[in-house]
Amino acid sequence: MLRFDPFTDIDPLTRSLLVAQTGSPRRPRFMPMDLYKVDDHYVLHADLPGIDPGSIDIDVDAGVLTLTAHRSHSEDDVQWLTSERFSGRYRRQVSLGENIDVDSISASYDNGVLSVTLPITQRAKPRRIEITSTGSPLGGGDRTPIEA
């Protein structure tokens, strides 16, 4: 009986793509991040350990927030035995809704975590609208606030 395992050939190929060769710099695959809403703003946390804060760039263009950072190995003339830490350019893009106040976005970098605060515009916040009666048979001119 002949057994055929299609994963026998795929496993070494997958391993070669995911594991760096000794002595070669590795490219970062992604920038892990969390995004959540608190009260009247969103908060984005992106993990960027070992990044020089001066290499971090945050741009907003056409409703897209772009985070870019760069990390390089400073030891160029050494013989690498293993190189597992990512080096190169990190880049992540997030589409923003039209309810974000792009002029008030702020950011900080602390202990390898980039934190970006994305405030919600005033026009997108819930507010109370007062409705007045003009003497209709249903109301005697009383003002009744309702939440919109």
Rank of each mutant, 00 (worst) to 15 (best):
A107P: 05
T132V: 11
A124I: 05
E130D: 12
A107E: 06
Y109A: 03
T121Y: 01
P137Y: 12
L138R: 13
G139W: 14
D142E: 14
G112Y: 01
A124T: 02
S115P: 02
R127A: 13
I131V: 12
E130A: 07
K125Y: 06
R127C: 12
G135M: 15
P126C: 04
S106L: 01
Y109P: 01
A107R: 03
S136D: 11
N111R: 08
L138Q: 12
I131G: 07
T117G: 07
K125V: 03
P119R: 07
A107H: 01
Y109G: 00
T134I: 06
D142V: 14
R128T: 10
P119C: 09
S136H: 08
I129L: 15
S108D: 02
R123Q: 15
K125I: 09
G112F: 05
T121S: 09
S136V: 10
R143N: 08
R127M: 11
T121L: 03
I129G: 13
D110I: 02
I129T: 15
Q122W: 05
G135K: 13
I129Y: 14
E130W: 10
D110R: 05
G135Y: 10
G140W: 13
P126R: 13
S136P: 03
T134G: 10
N111L: 07
I129W: 06
T117K: 14
A107C: 03
G141F: 06
G140Y: 13
A124V: 09
S136I: 11
T121G: 00
Y109K: 01
V116F: 05
T134L: 08
R123L: 11
